[in-house]
Design a protein around this nucleic acid. Structure first.
Length: 269
DNA sequence: TAGAAATGTTTAG
DNA sequence: TAAACCTTTCTAT
Protein backbone atom coordinates (compact mmCIF):
# COMPACT_ATOMS: atom_id res chain seq x y z
CA UNK A 1 0.00 0.00 0.00
CA UNK A 2 2.91 2.29 -0.32
CA UNK A 3 2.41 5.84 -1.50
CA UNK A 4 3.69 8.78 0.54
CA UNK A 5 0.86 8.74 3.07
CA UNK A 6 1.73 5.16 4.09
CA UNK A 7 5.34 6.04 4.84
CA UNK A 8 4.37 9.18 6.73
CA UNK A 9 2.06 7.16 8.92
CA UNK A 10 4.58 4.38 9.47
CA UNK A 11 7.29 6.85 10.51
CA UNK A 12 4.97 8.42 13.03
CA UNK A 13 3.86 5.06 14.46
CA UNK A 14 7.39 3.69 14.70
CA UNK A 15 8.63 6.90 16.28
CA UNK A 16 5.99 6.61 19.00
CA UNK A 17 6.53 2.89 19.58
CA UNK A 18 10.32 2.56 19.46
CA UNK A 19 12.22 5.88 19.56
CA UNK A 20 14.32 6.75 22.58
CA UNK A 21 14.69 3.12 23.65
CA UNK A 22 16.83 0.11 22.86
CA UNK A 23 15.61 -2.04 19.98
CA UNK A 24 16.18 -5.74 19.47
CA UNK A 25 16.90 -5.95 15.72
CA UNK A 26 16.91 -9.26 13.83
CA UNK A 27 16.64 -10.56 10.26
CA UNK A 28 15.12 -14.07 10.36
CA UNK A 29 15.33 -14.27 6.56
CA UNK A 30 19.03 -13.39 6.66
CA UNK A 31 19.22 -10.72 3.97
CA UNK A 32 19.71 -7.99 6.57
CA UNK A 33 21.45 -10.21 9.14
CA UNK A 34 24.88 -8.56 9.26
CA UNK A 35 23.42 -5.09 9.63
CA UNK A 36 20.79 -6.26 12.14
CA UNK A 37 23.51 -7.71 14.34
CA UNK A 38 25.36 -4.41 14.29
CA UNK A 39 22.25 -2.45 15.31
CA UNK A 40 20.89 -4.94 17.83
CA UNK A 41 20.42 -3.47 21.30
CA UNK A 42 21.15 0.12 20.27
CA UNK A 43 18.89 3.10 20.94
CA UNK A 44 16.71 4.30 18.05
CA UNK A 45 16.87 8.10 17.86
CA UNK A 46 14.08 8.88 15.43
CA UNK A 47 12.12 7.71 12.41
CA UNK A 48 11.22 10.08 9.59
CA UNK A 49 9.82 9.81 6.08
CA UNK A 50 10.21 11.82 2.92
CA UNK A 51 8.20 10.90 -0.15
CA UNK A 52 8.17 7.10 -0.25
CA UNK A 53 11.40 6.76 1.76
CA UNK A 54 11.68 5.86 5.45
CA UNK A 55 14.74 6.68 7.58
CA UNK A 56 15.40 5.23 11.05
CA UNK A 57 18.44 6.71 12.78
CA UNK A 58 20.51 4.71 15.27
CA UNK A 59 23.16 7.33 16.00
CA UNK A 60 25.15 7.86 12.80
CA UNK A 61 23.77 4.68 11.21
CA UNK A 62 20.51 5.06 9.35
CA UNK A 63 18.24 2.24 8.21
CA UNK A 64 16.83 3.27 4.84
CA UNK A 65 13.66 1.45 3.76
CA UNK A 66 11.84 1.72 0.46
CA UNK A 67 8.81 -0.55 0.27
CA UNK A 68 8.67 -0.69 -3.53
CA UNK A 69 5.56 -2.28 -4.92
CA UNK A 70 5.05 -5.14 -2.47
CA UNK A 71 6.82 -4.18 0.72
CA UNK A 72 4.83 -4.11 3.97
CA UNK A 73 5.32 -3.48 7.65
CA UNK A 74 3.12 -5.28 10.13
CA UNK A 75 3.18 -4.54 13.82
CA UNK A 76 1.62 -5.33 17.16
CA UNK A 77 2.00 -5.38 20.90
CA UNK A 78 2.94 -8.20 23.27
CA UNK A 79 4.93 -11.14 21.99
CA UNK A 80 5.68 -11.15 18.25
CA UNK A 81 4.41 -14.09 16.18
CA UNK A 82 6.73 -16.94 15.22
CA UNK A 83 8.73 -15.69 12.17
CA UNK A 84 7.11 -16.93 8.94
CA UNK A 85 7.96 -16.43 5.30
CA UNK A 86 10.63 -14.01 4.14
CA UNK A 87 10.93 -11.78 7.20
CA UNK A 88 13.61 -9.25 6.27
CA UNK A 89 13.76 -7.21 9.46
CA UNK A 90 12.11 -7.41 12.86
CA UNK A 91 12.22 -4.82 15.63
CA UNK A 92 11.24 -5.60 19.21
CA UNK A 93 11.10 -3.03 21.99
CA UNK A 94 9.67 -2.56 25.48
CA UNK A 95 7.00 -0.11 24.33
CA UNK A 96 5.52 2.69 26.40
CA UNK A 97 4.40 0.52 29.30
CA UNK A 98 6.83 -2.39 29.00
CA UNK A 99 4.21 -4.69 27.55
CA UNK A 100 6.30 -5.06 24.38
CA UNK A 101 6.00 -3.81 20.80
CA UNK A 102 7.22 -5.33 17.55
CA UNK A 103 7.22 -4.61 13.83
CA UNK A 104 8.07 -6.84 10.85
CA UNK A 105 9.29 -5.82 7.38
CA UNK A 106 8.80 -8.03 4.30
CA UNK A 107 9.22 -7.59 0.55
CA UNK A 108 10.90 -4.19 0.54
CA UNK A 109 12.88 -3.02 -2.48
CA UNK A 110 15.42 -1.39 -0.17
CA UNK A 111 16.38 -2.19 3.41
CA UNK A 112 19.92 -0.98 3.92
CA UNK A 113 22.26 0.71 6.35
CA UNK A 114 23.44 4.13 5.15
CA UNK A 115 25.16 7.26 6.50
CA UNK A 116 23.77 10.78 7.00
CA UNK A 117 25.59 11.83 3.84
CA UNK A 118 23.84 9.12 1.85
CA UNK A 119 20.50 10.21 3.31
CA UNK A 120 21.20 13.70 2.00
CA UNK A 121 21.94 12.34 -1.48
CA UNK A 122 18.53 10.65 -1.53
CA UNK A 123 16.73 13.79 -0.32
CA UNK A 124 18.56 15.90 -2.90
CA UNK A 125 17.01 14.04 -5.80
CA UNK A 126 13.43 14.27 -4.52
CA UNK A 127 10.92 16.97 -5.40
CA UNK A 128 8.64 18.61 -2.80
CA UNK A 129 6.46 16.26 -0.71
CA UNK A 130 2.89 17.54 -0.17
CA UNK A 131 2.93 16.05 3.34
CA UNK A 132 5.92 18.12 4.50
CA UNK A 133 5.11 21.59 5.80
CA UNK A 134 8.23 23.20 4.37
CA UNK A 135 7.76 21.83 0.86
CA UNK A 136 7.70 24.43 -1.87
CA UNK A 137 5.20 23.65 -4.66
CA UNK A 138 6.90 26.24 -6.89
CA UNK A 139 9.88 23.88 -7.21
CA UNK A 140 7.63 21.27 -8.79
CA UNK A 141 5.90 23.78 -11.03
CA UNK A 142 9.24 25.10 -12.28
CA UNK A 143 9.88 21.67 -13.78
CA UNK A 144 6.32 20.97 -14.89
CA UNK A 145 5.93 24.29 -16.71
CA UNK A 146 9.16 23.72 -18.63
CA UNK A 147 8.32 20.17 -19.77
CA UNK A 148 6.66 18.75 -22.85
CA UNK A 149 6.09 15.47 -20.99
CA UNK A 150 2.47 14.60 -20.12
CA UNK A 151 1.29 15.71 -16.67
CA UNK A 152 0.26 12.09 -15.97
CA UNK A 153 3.90 11.09 -16.34
CA UNK A 154 5.35 14.09 -14.48
CA UNK A 155 3.22 13.37 -11.40
CA UNK A 156 4.91 9.95 -11.11
CA UNK A 157 8.43 11.39 -11.33
CA UNK A 158 9.77 11.54 -7.77
CA UNK A 159 12.28 14.22 -8.76
CA UNK A 160 9.36 16.47 -9.66
CA UNK A 161 7.03 15.56 -6.79
CA UNK A 162 7.74 13.15 -3.94
CA UNK A 163 5.23 10.69 -2.52
CA UNK A 164 2.60 10.57 -5.27
CA UNK A 165 2.04 7.12 -6.79
CA UNK A 166 -0.34 5.53 -9.24
CA UNK A 167 -3.50 5.91 -7.15
CA UNK A 168 -3.03 9.58 -6.26
CA UNK A 169 -1.97 10.32 -9.85
CA UNK A 170 -5.24 9.00 -11.27
CA UNK A 171 -7.44 10.50 -8.58
CA UNK A 172 -5.91 13.98 -8.45
CA UNK A 173 -6.16 14.35 -12.22
CA UNK A 174 -9.80 13.33 -12.10
CA UNK A 175 -10.64 15.66 -9.23
CA UNK A 176 -9.02 18.53 -11.10
CA UNK A 177 -10.72 17.48 -14.37
CA UNK A 178 -7.36 17.49 -16.12
CA UNK A 179 -6.43 15.22 -19.01
CA UNK A 180 -3.45 13.02 -18.11
CA UNK A 181 -2.12 13.67 -21.63
CA UNK A 182 -1.83 17.45 -21.29
CA UNK A 183 1.82 18.50 -21.63
CA UNK A 184 3.29 19.91 -18.42
CA UNK A 185 4.04 23.24 -20.07
CA UNK A 186 0.32 23.70 -20.80
CA UNK A 187 -0.68 23.39 -17.14
CA UNK A 188 -1.51 26.88 -15.86
CA UNK A 189 -0.10 28.21 -12.59
CA UNK A 190 -3.60 28.37 -11.06
CA UNK A 191 -4.28 24.77 -12.11
CA UNK A 192 -1.08 23.63 -10.45
CA UNK A 193 -1.91 25.62 -7.30
CA UNK A 194 -5.30 23.89 -7.11
CA UNK A 195 -3.74 20.49 -7.72
CA UNK A 196 -1.13 20.96 -4.98
CA UNK A 197 -3.72 22.19 -2.47
CA UNK A 198 -5.91 19.18 -3.23
CA UNK A 199 -2.95 16.80 -2.90
CA UNK A 200 -2.20 18.21 0.55
CA UNK A 201 -5.81 17.56 1.59
CA UNK A 202 -6.02 14.07 0.05
CA UNK A 203 -2.67 12.86 1.35
CA UNK A 204 -3.36 14.13 4.87
CA UNK A 205 -6.69 12.32 4.72
CA UNK A 206 -4.79 9.22 3.59
CA UNK A 207 -2.48 9.45 6.61
CA UNK A 208 -5.47 9.75 8.91
CA UNK A 209 -7.56 7.00 7.33
CA UNK A 210 -4.64 4.65 6.64
CA UNK A 211 -5.75 4.23 3.04
CA UNK A 212 -6.47 6.34 -0.02
CA UNK A 213 -10.00 7.74 -0.10
CA UNK A 214 -10.72 10.44 -2.66
CA UNK A 215 -14.46 10.51 -3.30
CA UNK A 216 -16.86 12.92 -1.61
CA UNK A 217 -19.24 10.10 -0.92
CA UNK A 218 -16.62 7.98 0.81
CA UNK A 219 -15.71 11.08 2.79
CA UNK A 220 -19.27 11.54 4.01
CA UNK A 221 -19.69 7.91 4.90
CA UNK A 222 -16.45 7.85 6.82
CA UNK A 223 -17.97 10.20 9.36
CA UNK A 224 -20.74 7.74 10.08
CA UNK A 225 -18.79 4.54 9.73
CA UNK A 226 -16.41 2.70 7.47
CA UNK A 227 -16.83 3.64 3.79
CA UNK A 228 -17.66 0.97 1.30
CA UNK A 229 -14.37 -0.25 -0.06
CA UNK A 230 -15.33 0.08 -3.72
CA UNK A 231 -16.52 3.60 -3.14
CA UNK A 232 -13.13 5.01 -2.33
CA UNK A 233 -11.97 6.07 -5.80
CA UNK A 234 -13.31 7.95 -8.82
CA UNK A 235 -11.32 6.22 -11.55
CA UNK A 236 -8.49 4.11 -10.14
CA UNK A 237 -9.05 0.45 -11.15
CA UNK A 238 -12.55 1.22 -12.46
CA UNK A 239 -11.88 0.34 -16.11
CA UNK A 240 -15.12 -0.08 -18.09
CA UNK A 241 -17.30 1.05 -15.19
CA UNK A 242 -19.38 4.22 -15.54
CA UNK A 243 -17.76 7.44 -14.36
CA UNK A 244 -19.29 8.45 -11.02
CA UNK A 245 -19.96 11.94 -12.35
CA UNK A 246 -20.97 11.62 -16.02
CA UNK A 247 -21.49 7.90 -16.66
CA UNK A 248 -18.91 7.57 -19.45
CA UNK A 249 -16.88 4.36 -19.29
CA UNK A 250 -13.61 4.81 -17.42
CA UNK A 251 -10.65 4.05 -19.66
CA UNK A 252 -7.21 2.63 -19.02
CA UNK A 253 -3.89 2.78 -20.84
CA UNK A 254 -0.30 2.19 -19.82
CA UNK A 255 1.62 5.41 -19.17
CA UNK A 256 5.22 5.28 -17.90
CA UNK A 257 4.87 1.54 -17.42
CA UNK A 258 1.86 1.80 -15.11
CA UNK A 259 -1.87 1.55 -15.66
CA UNK A 260 -3.42 4.97 -15.98
CA UNK A 261 -7.18 5.39 -15.40
CA UNK A 262 -9.23 8.37 -16.54
CA UNK A 263 -12.65 9.52 -17.72
CA UNK A 264 -12.41 10.74 -21.33
CA UNK A 265 -15.39 13.05 -20.87
CA UNK A 266 -14.63 14.70 -17.51
CA UNK A 267 -10.94 14.87 -18.35
CA UNK A 268 -11.14 15.81 -22.00
CA UNK A 269 -8.43 18.49 -22.01
C1' DT B 1 -2.72 -25.20 -7.37
C1' DA B 2 -1.40 -22.13 -10.72
C1' DG B 3 -1.38 -17.64 -12.50
C1' DA B 4 -1.99 -12.83 -12.57
C1' DA B 5 -1.81 -8.45 -10.60
C1' DA B 6 -0.39 -5.01 -7.26
C1' DT B 7 -0.21 1.71 -4.24
C1' DG B 8 7.62 1.14 -7.28
C1' DT B 9 12.36 1.79 -8.70
C1' DT B 10 16.65 0.61 -11.04
C1' DT B 11 19.33 -1.10 -14.72
C1' DA B 12 20.05 -2.70 -19.29
C1' DG B 13 19.44 -2.22 -24.19
C1' DT C 1 10.93 0.60 -23.55
C1' DA C 2 11.51 -3.77 -21.23
C1' DA C 3 13.00 -6.66 -17.79
C1' DA C 4 14.37 -7.60 -13.23
C1' DC C 5 13.62 -7.43 -8.49
C1' DC C 6 10.54 -9.29 -4.59
C1' DT C 7 6.30 -10.97 -1.83
C1' DT C 8 1.43 -11.34 -0.93
C1' DT C 9 -3.28 -11.74 -2.27
C1' DC C 10 -6.98 -12.59 -5.07
C1' DT C 11 -9.07 -15.15 -8.95
C1' DA C 12 -9.52 -18.85 -12.12
C1' DT C 13 -9.14 -23.68 -13.10
Amino acid sequence: MPEGHTLFRLAREQQAAFAGREVHVTSPQGRFAGQAEMLDGRVLDDVTSYGKHLFAAFGPDVVHVHLGLYGTFTSGTGLPPEPRGALRMRWEGPGEDGEGVWTDLRGATACELITDGEVQLILDRLGPDPLRKRSDPAKAFARISRSRVAIGALLMDQAVLAGVGNVYRAEILFRQRLSPFRPGKDVAAEEWAAMWADLVVLMRAGVKAGRIVTTERADRERRRGPALRDDAHYVYRRTGLPCRICGTEVRTEVMVGRNLFWCPTCQAV
